[in-house]
Write a protein that binds this DNA or RNA. Sequence first.
DNA 1: TTAAATTGTGTAATCGATTACACATCACTC
DNA 2: GAGTGATGTGTAATCGATTACACAATTTAA
Lengths: 329, 329
Amino acid sequence: MTTINDIAKMAEVSRTTVSRALNNSGYVSEDVRKRIMKIVEETGYMPSQSAKSLRTKRSGVVGVILPRLSTETSSRVVRGINDFLAKQGYQILLTDTELDSDKEIDYIRLLKSRHVDGIILLATNVNDRLLKAIHDADIPFLSIGQELPGITSLVYDDYHAASDLTNMLIHKGHEKIGFIGVTKEDPAVGQLRSKAYKDTMEKRGLPVKDHWIGEGDFSIESGYEQMKRILKNSLSDVPTAVFAVTDRMAIGAIEYLKEQGYRIPEDMAVVGIGASAMSKYLTPSLTTVDYFNEEVGKKAGSLLLDKINNKKVEKKFELTYRLILRDSV
Amino acid sequence: MTTINDIAKMAEVSRTTVSRALNNSGYVSEDVRKRIMKIVEETGYMPSQSAKSLRTKRSGVVGVILPRLSTETSSRVVRGINDFLAKQGYQILLTDTELDSDKEIDYIRLLKSRHVDGIILLATNVNDRLLKAIHDADIPFLSIGQELPGITSLVYDDYHAASDLTNMLIHKGHEKIGFIGVTKEDPAVGQLRSKAYKDTMEKRGLPVKDHWIGEGDFSIESGYEQMKRILKNSLSDVPTAVFAVTDRMAIGAIEYLKEQGYRIPEDMAVVGIGASAMSKYLTPSLTTVDYFNEEVGKKAGSLLLDKINNKKVEKKFELTYRLILRDSV
DNA sequence: TTAAATTGTGTAATCGATTACACATCACTC
DNA sequence: GAGTGATGTGTAATCGATTACACAATTTAA
C-alpha cells in the first residue's frame, strides 16, 4: 500500500503538504498541488480511512440496523438511504438483527466502535434497554417506523392509514371485517394498526368479534394460516372482508381463500399495507397503502446528515401515505 | 469515549495487558484478567476499530458491490452473505452502483481505502478496466453471477438453465417460442441465456424468428413493452410461448398478455428465471428457475472468508439450479 | 542446586493520517 | 523601510490500538 509518506517523498514535500493538498485545507501553491495530484493520480493512492477516522473521529460511514434484510420494505428504505448518502460520499454499514431485539443493542455498540458517523434504526420492538443503549451511544441517531421517545423518529401514520382502510371497507358496505395483525410488541404495526381498526369499527357502530381476528408474524405463510383459522372459527359468522396489516400476510390470506374457492372480492374483500411491488400484479390486484419507502429512506439520510453536521432537527416526522385502491375490494 | 488507556488506568495495569486480556494473546494472570473484564463490562468499553485496523490491517468488514439494491436477487444474495459473515463477526459495507459500471471501479478503490478485508461483487458488465481495478486492488475478491477471468467466481449455470427451460417448452409441444432478453453487455444474463435458447431451438430443428425476440432492461415495464412489440411484429406468426430471462420481465409480459385477452398458458405459455417470491402467487403461478440466491450468498461469504484466511480456493464454482414447474406453462 | 522454560507485565515503536504551531517569504501600506 | 497580513511549507504531537522486545518472578527439569 502506498501511504501519504510515499506520496510526500515522491513529490519532495512533507506529508503535511500532501494532506493539505488532498483536503483543500490551508495553503498549497499551485505548483506543488499539481505535482502532488499528478502523483496521486498515477499511483492510485487513496488515504487510509482507518488512519483518517482515528484522527478525525469521522468515518464517512453510517450504520443501518434492519430487522430483516430482504424484506421489500427494508430493502426499499435502505435503497433510499443509500441513494441520498452515497451522493454525499457516505457508505452504509449494514447489520441485520434477524428479528432478534437483543441484537439491536449489540449492533448499536458495535457500530459505535466502528466509528460510524450516525445510525439509522428500523426498529421493531421498543424497550427500555434499547432506549438506554441509544442514549449511551451518544451519536446521531434516527428511528424509522417506530416513535422512540427522545429520539428523532420518522414514523408512518399507521393509525390513520389503517383507519382509512377500515373506513373504506365499511363504506363499500362491509360490516363484518376480519383482521390479521402481528404481535403487540411492535408498537407501530402491532398496536397502532390494530387500534385504528378497532376504533373505527366501534365508531361506526360495528361489532368486532374475536374469531375474526388473527395474529401472524409478517410472513406469507402466517397470513395463510391465520386466514384459515378465521374461517374455521367463524363458521356461520364469516366476515366479508379481511384487513391484513401487511401485504405479505394479505397475499397468504388470498392464497388460502382461493384454495377454498372464494372469489375475491365478491366473496371476500382483502386489503394489505405496504404497496409491495407484487401487489399490483396479483390477481386480483391488491388494495393497499403506499408508504413511499424510498422517499422515507432519502429523508432519513438527509436528516441524519443534518444531525451529523449539528443542525437542529425536529424530534418527530409524520410521514405521508397513499391509499391504492385496486381490484381486491 | 473511553479508550484502552482509560481501562488500563482503572485496572492499574498497562494498556498492553488490557490488549492482551481482550484479545487472548500472550499471558495474563487470572486475577488481572478478571479485574480488566469487570471494568470493561461496567464501562461498556469497545476498542476503536479504526485504531485496531490501522494497526492490524484487518477491519472485520467486507465490501459488497451491487448493481442495484432492492432487486430481489440482490437482496437475497446479500442476506445470504450477511447470514454467514455476521456469525463470523464480520459486517457488510454496502455499495450500489445503480447499474453504472464505472462505479464498480470507483467502489473497489473506495472499499480498499476503507480497509475492507475482502470484496464481493455482483457484476453486470465485464470489461478490462474492471479486471484491472480488481487486480490492482490486490485484496480477497469474489465475483457472483459473472465469470471473471483469473478471479474466483460463483457462476450460475445460465446456459443449462435456459436450455432446460427451452427444452421443456418444446417438449410441451411449443414450436414458436419468443424470447425477451437483455443487453449483450451482460455476459451471463444477456449472452449465455440467449445463446442457450437459440442453440436449443436449433438443435431441435426449430426456427428462431427475429420478430419473436425482444430486449428489455430487467424491469417489469420493459417486459410489458417487449411483449407488446413481439405481438405487434409477429402478426400472423405469433409465438405460443415466450421465455423471459428474468421473472420481472415475465411478469410484465404476462401483464400485457392479460390486457390483450390472452389466456395463460392456453394461448401463451410464459416462463421466467429467478424464482422471485411473487412468482408463486401470480395467477397463473409462474414457471421459473430457482438459483438459490441465499445459498449462493452464504457460499460466497464462506469462500471469501477462506480467501481472507489464505486458504486455497478454486477459481470457479458452478452453482446448481432447479426448475420450478408451475401453471404458466 | 542451577540452568532453562514458563508465566506475567511493562516500555516504547508503530500503523497512516490530521493539525497546532513555528517559521520563512513576499507583497502592501503608511 | 518597518510593520502587517497573506501565503507556503515543515516539525512534531496526536488519535487508540497492537506487538516486538526486555525483564522479573516463578516453575520445571536435570
